[in-house]
Each structure stands twice: as structure tokens, then as C-alpha cells.
Design a protein around this nucleic acid. Structure first.
Lengths: 192, 192
DNA sequence: GGCTAAGGCTATTAGCCGTAGCTTTATGGC
DNA sequence: GCCATAAAGCTACGGCTAATAGCCTTAGCC
């Protein structure tokens, strides 16, 4: 009965700690409650939507963290240097917190908060891409390409889909070079 | 008691039908059993590892299907044409069976069967990349880049992560162009 | 000092996986 | 043609989960 003084943010903290330790499979309200020192149903006082909402909050938090890392990496850089830093930071985050990153797609369906966080993340990418003279629809296509590469490599490397022994860092460098080359010859929007 | 005459393959068939209809979340032994016209525990006669093994079998099947599509797409083509066909086929499969594709990463951990199927899939990609004069470690790096792009775009587009209204097909075309450009200037392995 | 609201709790329901053990069917050998 | 045996089904059960209902206690404010 001693009141623990939980907040939704703290519940997410505990959930993230649990995910980091044991993976997304192990995310249950029961174990989160145990970590928080509280009975399972008590969590509903803070996360009224139960497990579904908790997963949503986790996705929002992780997206925000990732956007932060990308923003930090991009600040003070431009052009190829910025793109390289962006992709390195993305992969570094995914590697440092693989389970956390894997929790990203577990979000129910995009809602307002998640969209906002994702928009900020995309905003960082777009800002960097403007350094290549891209705007209009083309900057969107380019940003999607950047995300595809970053996410694809992160997801596959994390899940161990790359079986062979070749160095992953080299692959990542090649991938960055390919992207940068593509960005230099990207079509320009015609309008304006 | 009338014997249904189930086989492991048929159990996977039912599971895939269920996933196609209702998504991976809805994959439970109970519902698979219901579809198969059998009581839940009876499934263990065919899939002794329970839900975990069922997920593994699903991943193997889907990987094989995907490898088939890629192989079909690549046959009779080479160079840029083959790469384009490969990526289009990949995305077409993911779009046609989004839930099935989403079931791919749900595999427990790579085992022999899954590795075999994945090796065949990668083999198709590598065969195409040899058309660019790549070999040794570099063809591996290039194949990983191809997979990253294909998977990243598929995963993000399927989960609705691309919010804006710009045409996804155009994005995909840009992405293919970027990849092809990169492949043309790919470093050659020095050995041999 | 007492009221209100928030944050805990226990108890319960429903659904799931997985195991144990029984029964029936199909098949192959004699 | 019959019987033994293995395969394939079943029911029953235990243990886990999420989620709801309803109660109690604490904290804080008027």
C-alpha cells in the first residue's frame, strides 16, 4: 500500500529496461508491474489502454530518442558529411539498443504522437537533403530512400539476417557511398 | 474423430491463410486448429514444437516463396534490367502479402532450414550482381545493400511509415536508380 | 477536519499455450 | 480376414497472460 508514485513516463522507463534486458517478447504487463513494484492491474491507472497503449508509448519514446540522435549527428554538418553522420548515428542507435529498435514496428497504428515524433525524425533527414538542392516531391522521395536504407540495414543486421563473415562496417560504408552517389545525381523537382 | 489427415505443410497453409486474413497478431494455435477442423492439442502431432516451431515453418515457407519470385523475375534478364526486376518482384510480393511478409522477422532464430532458404534467396541476388563484375567480398557487401534497400522499403511501406502523399512507386523507382548507379561504380575486389 | 480524487489492492473472467493420458482410426503382417 | 501397432485424434487440466470490477487507503485541498 505504500504509494509508489508512478507516472506514465516511469512505466515506459521500466518497460524499456525490460525490453533492453529480455527483448520485446518479454514485454508483459506482469513483468513491468513487477519491476515497478506494483500489482499488474495498477498499471492501468497510468497506462489506461493497457499493453496496446504501452507499446504505443514505447514506439513514441524510441522514435523520439532516434530523432534526437539523428539531430545531434547532423548539427554542424552538411552534404555528404551530414548524410554519413546520419546513417552512422542511425545504425549506432539500432546496434546499441537492438531490442528497443525492434520494438518500433510493434506500434498499433500510427497515431498523433507517433506521427509527430516521426515527422521530426523525417524533418532532420529532409533538412540534410536540402543541402543537395532537393525540394518539392523529390526531397520526399530521397528521404524515403534514406529511411529505407537505414531501416533495412538496421533491421537485417539486428536480426542476424546477414549470415556471412564479411565485415558489416564495410557493408555499411558501401551502402553510404551508394546513397551519397545517388543523391548527387538525384533528379530535381521541376516546379518553382 | 473422422481423421482429417493433416500434415505439417497443411498446418502451415492454414496458418498462412489466417495471417493473410487477420495479421500475425491473430496467429494462435487455437485459430489455426479451428481452421484445420481439429482440436488445438492435435496440432502438436504435426508441429511438435508448438507455436514457436509453427512460426519458424512460416518464416521458412515465406522465404522460399520470396526466393521463388525473385528467381522467376531474374531469369532471362541481366544487369540493370535484372536488378530492376528483382526489386519490383520483391516489393510486389511484400505488397501482395503484407502480413505474410511481416511474419518473416518473427522467426525464433535462424536454423538450418531457414538459413537454407535465405541462402537461395541471396544466391539469386548474387547471381545478378555478378553481372556487374562483382565477386569476392564485394559481391556480399553489394548483396547486403540490395537486401537492405528492398527490405527497408518493403517494411516501411507496409507498416504505413511513409505518411505523405507522394507516389510510392516513384520513390521505388528513384531507389532502384540509386542502387543501379551505385552498382555501376562499386569497388572491385582486389584479390584474384 | 473532512471530502475528493488518485493510486494502490484482491478477485475474477476469458483466452491462450502446452502436457498427460485416453480413444479411435488406419495400416501392414500374418 | 484378423489382429497388433502406430499415428492421429480427443478431453481434461495447469499455468500463464490481459483486462475488468470493486474495494481500500493515501494525499492533498478547502
Amino acid at each position: 500500500m505504500p504509494r509508489v508514485g508512478l507516472t506514465p513516463d516511469q512505466v515506459v522507463d521500466h518497460a524499456l529496461a525490460l525490453i533492453d534486458d529480455q527483448g520485446t517478447e518479454a514485454l508483459t504487463l506482469a513483468s513491468v508491474a513487477a519491476r515497478a513494484g506494483v500489482a499488474t492491474p495498477s498499471l492501468y491507472k497510468h497506462v489506461s489502454g493497457g499493453l496496446t497503449e504501452l507499446r504505443r508509448l514505447i514506439a513514441v519514446r524510441v522514435t523520439e530518442e532516434l530523432a534526437d540522435r539523428l539531430a545531434e549527428a547532423a548539427v554542424g554538418r552538411s552534404g555528404d558529411d551530414a548524410v554519413t553522420a546520419l546513417l552512422r548515428a542511425y545504425q549506432a542507435y539500432a546496434t546499441a539498443h537492438p531490442h528497443r529498435y525492434a520494438a518500433l514496428p510493434q506500434a498499433p497504428q500510427p497515431d498523433e504522437d507517433l506521427t509527430k515524433a516521426a515527422t521530426r525524425l523525417v524533418g532532420v533527414i529532409i533538412a540534410v537533403l536540402r543541402g543537395y538542392g532537393l525540394d518539392g516531391p523529390e526531397v520526399i522521395h530521397a528521404a524515403r530512400t534514406v529511411r529505407s536504407l537505414a531501416h533495412g540495414f538496421a533491421a537485417l543486421s539486428i536480426t542476424g539476417a546477414f549470415q556471412l563473415t564479411e565485415d558489416l562496417t564495410t557493408t555499411h560504408n558501401r551502402l553510404i557511398t551508394t546513397l551519397i552517389t545517388g543523391l548527387h545525381s538525384w533528379p530535381k523537382s521541376e516546379e518553382q
